[in-house]
Design a protein around this nucleic acid. Structure first.
Lengths: 162, 162
DNA sequence: TATTGTTATACTCTATAACTATA
DNA sequence: TATAGTTATAGAGTATAACAATA
């Protein structure tokens, strides 16, 4: 089930092909993102969690009584896709639904959920450490400073929207 | 069909939640990668191409007579997943199969494929320009210098493999 | 009327296993 | 035996449309 951590058969040392995408920022982001996702997925998978599930737990932990829709807004997940996520986490008694404000339900972690979040944090720390050591402190800081510009403040569209 | 370019309803300015993932390199990469993928997808979609299809065309263009498996190795796509990709591109007469060396078939772009690659390049250039302007020349260069470390030379696994 | 939770559905990308063909 | 192409299938993530309930 779990996609085991990248274990490429050591890219064939013989022929070397030209990759015309190498100088594209988007391509580099995609490959880098995929590599880190795979690595984290392996670590988190030992807790029988997927990355999105883990992310949801972390957000609820940091924001008790947040609603399902708001979690989606924080993480960039659509309302409709939050439903099976929360259902599953509730089924595992990691999350519980509390009072309802309007139609919204406030979500909290169960003690079991809190415990799992702590284990997630350890796994994440190990994971991040593996990659952080690839960079100087300044390089890492620059990455964390630059990357949010790409997706936050959502890129004023060129075309005016009348 | 096409996932229209990110046009978020302007993240609700009212409540602001804590996102505990914000300081994680992996999270920033995922969000940034997704944003650029969506934007490029919109541009490339006008040519009725998906990003993976476009990537394959670009690699064949840069490496005439490359085989299907080798394209996969360059782009990080598995052999099995290359099959429907090439089949579809051949059906649209963008790619043609040439001589076979062993079991491998050498792939080339048709004139139609070459023409489409030129249009792809324009779309990509516009797309990259939209994001390049978010960074100073040095910042962009640093990004392109740092990111490959994450996925190339594939991260010596911690556990020795006997 | 706007927002939330919900259902259903579909598409893309990725992963695995197993088969065939060829050097 | 190793590699290439192939088939089939499954699992995640994401997207859209539509509906009910609630303020």
């Amino acid at each position: 089930m779990r996609s085991s951590a990248k274990r490429a058969p050591r890219p064939s040392p013989s022929a070397s092909w030209d990759n015309p995408l190498d100088q594209l920022l988007g391509y580099q982001l995609r490959r880098a993102s995929f590599a880190m996702l795979s690595d984290l997925s392996a670590g988190i998978g030992k807790l029988d969690l997927r990355i999105t599930e883990m992310s949801v737990l972390m957000v609820i932990h940091a924001n008790p009584d947040i609603s399902q829709s708001d979690i989606g807004r924080v993480l960039g997940i659509q309302r409709a896709n939050m439903v099976p996520l929360i259902t599953q986490l509730e089924r595992r008694t990691l999350v519980s639904r509390g009072e309802t404000r309007g139609r919204a339900q406030s979500l909290r972690l169960t003690p079991e959920g809190e415990a799992l979040v702590r284990r997630c944090r350890e796994a994440i720390a190990e994971h991040e450490a593996r990659y952080t050591k690839l960079f100087s402190p300044k390089e890492r800081q620059d990455l964390l400073r630059c990357l949010p510009r790409i997706w936050q403040d959502d890129m004023l569209p060129e075309e005016s929207d009348l």
